[in-house]
Design a protein around this nucleic acid. Structure first.
Lengths: 201, 201
DNA sequence: TGAAGTATATTCACTGGTGAGTATACTTTG
DNA sequence: CAAAGTATACTCACCAGTGAATATACTTCA
C-alpha cells in the first residue's frame, strides 16, 4: 500500500490546482505549493520531476472534470440544440460571477507559456480544447442533417471560438455578461445552421 | 533639449515591447530589459517608477497602433460589410503565421495578471478592447438600419468575442486556421444581421 | 559674462529576498 | 532489513528595488 504516497501526491496536486489557477503558473513557487500541501519541497520533487511536470499534471487533472461539467450543463438544459448550447454559456456566466473565478486554466496557461510552444502542458491544453470541439461536432452531427450547408465541425469550431472568446473577454473586463453575449451569438449560429429562422432570445 | 532622456525612455519602451510580448510579463526581468536597451536598471527606475508601471506603459504604447491596424485592414478590404469584417480575421491569420507572433498582448497580459484585477495594465487592456468594440458598433450603425432586430452593439460584441476567441485559440493550437474559421463565423453573423440570406464563402 | 547653483539623466554596486533544484540523512512500513 | 517516502538544510542564480555618486545641461544673478 502506498496510501501515504498517494496522499502526498494528491495533496500536492490539489494545492497546485488551487494556486496555479488562482495566481498563475509563473507567479507560484514550488515552495508555496509545498507549504500549502503541508509538506516539503523535496517531497514535491519526489513525486514530480520538475515544476513543468507539475504544471502538466495540473492541466491533466482538469481535463476530464471540465469536459464533464460542460456536458452536464448541456444535458441538463431544456429545449432544442440552440438552447442547450446557449446553456453552456449561461452556466459559464454564472460561474464567472464567483469571485474566485479566474478564467479558463488552459487558456491562461497557454498565454503564460506562449514562449514555449513545445511545452508538455501546451499539448494537454490543445488536446483538451480539441476534445470540446469534437464533442460539439458530435452533438451537432447527431442532431440531424438539417444543417447541410453548415458542416457540423465548422459549427462546432465556431461555438468553441465563442467560448474561448468569452473566457478571455470576461477576464479582461471582469464582466460575466460577455458570456451571455457569446451565448446569444452561439445561439444565432446554431439556430441559423438548423435552417430555421434565427429566433433570438 | 532632453533628447538623451527621450532616447533612453524610448529604448526602454522598445525593449520592453519586444521582450514582454515575446516572453511574457512575468518571464522578463528588468535586468533583461535594461540590458536589451543598453542602459542600467537604475535608469529604468528613473523613467518608470516600477515594473508594473512599465507594463502599463507597454500596453499603452500598443493601444493606438493595434487599433489602427484593424482599421486599415477593414478599410482596405473590398466588398460589403461582411467582407470587410472577415478581412480583419484573414489579416490576423496572416500575421499569426509569422513565427514571432504570440497572440494578443492585451489578452496575454490579462491572463498573467488575472490575480491582480485592479492592476493599471488591466484597465488599459479593458479600454483597448472596448475601443475596438465601439468602433465596430459605429461601423455597423453607419452601414445601415437594415440590421434592425440585431442591434449594432450586440453584433459588434459578437464579432469582438470571435476575435478574442481566435487570438486565444491560435495560441493554444499554434494554428492560424482558427482565425479563418472565426472570420467565417463573423461573416455569417454580419451577413445574417443585414437580413440577406447568409451566404457563406 | 561667467561662476554658482539646481534639475535632469545616468552609472556602479549593492540588498534583502525568492526561485528552482539538490545532497544527505532520517523514518516509516511491508 | 530494504525500499519508499519525507525532512533538514543547502546551493546558486536571479529578481525587484535602492543608495550614493557623477556627469551633463539649464538657470540665475553679481
Amino acid at each position: 500500500m502506498r496510501s501515504t504516497s498517494s496522499n502526498a501526491r494528491d495533496r500536492i496536486l490539489t494545492a497546485a490546482n488551487k494556486l496555479f489557477y488562482a495566481e498563475g503558473i509563473r507567479a507560484v513557487s514550488l515552495d508555496t505549493i509545498a507549504a500549502k500541501a503541508g509538506i516539503t519541497k523535496k517531497t514535491v520533487y519526489y513525486h514530480f520531476k520538475s515544476k513543468d511536470d507539475l504544471i502538466e499534471a495540473y492541466l491533466v487533472s482538469r481535463d476530464q472534470p471540465n469536459l464533464e461539467l460542460f456536458r452536464s450543463w448541456f444535458e441538463a438544459a431544456e429545449g432544442g440544440l440552440p438552447d442547450k448550447v446557449q446553456a453552456i454559456f449561461q452556466n459559464i456566466a454564472a460561474s464567472a460571477r464567483h469571485p474566485k473565478w479566474k478564467g479558463c486554466g488552459f487558456l491562461r496557461t497557454a498565454a503564460e507559456l506562449a514562449n514555449m510552444p513545445g511545452h508538455p502542458a501546451m499539448k494537454v491544453g490543445a488536446a483538451h480544447k480539441k476534445k470540446f470541439e469534437a464533442w460539439m461536432a458530435e452533438e451537432f452531427q447527431a442532431a440531424g442533417r438539417e444543417l447541410a450547408p453548415y458542416p457540423a465541425h465548422d459549427l462546432a469550431r465556431h461555438v468553441m471560438l465563442l467560448l474561448d472568446g468569452a473566457f478571455s473577454t470576461i477576464l479582461v473586463h471582469r464582466d460575466a455578461a460577455y458570456a451571455e453575449a457569446a451565448g446569444e451569438a452561439a445561439r444565432v449560429l446554431v439556430a441559423g445552421a438548423l435552417g430555421g429562422a434565427s429566433q433570438r432570445a
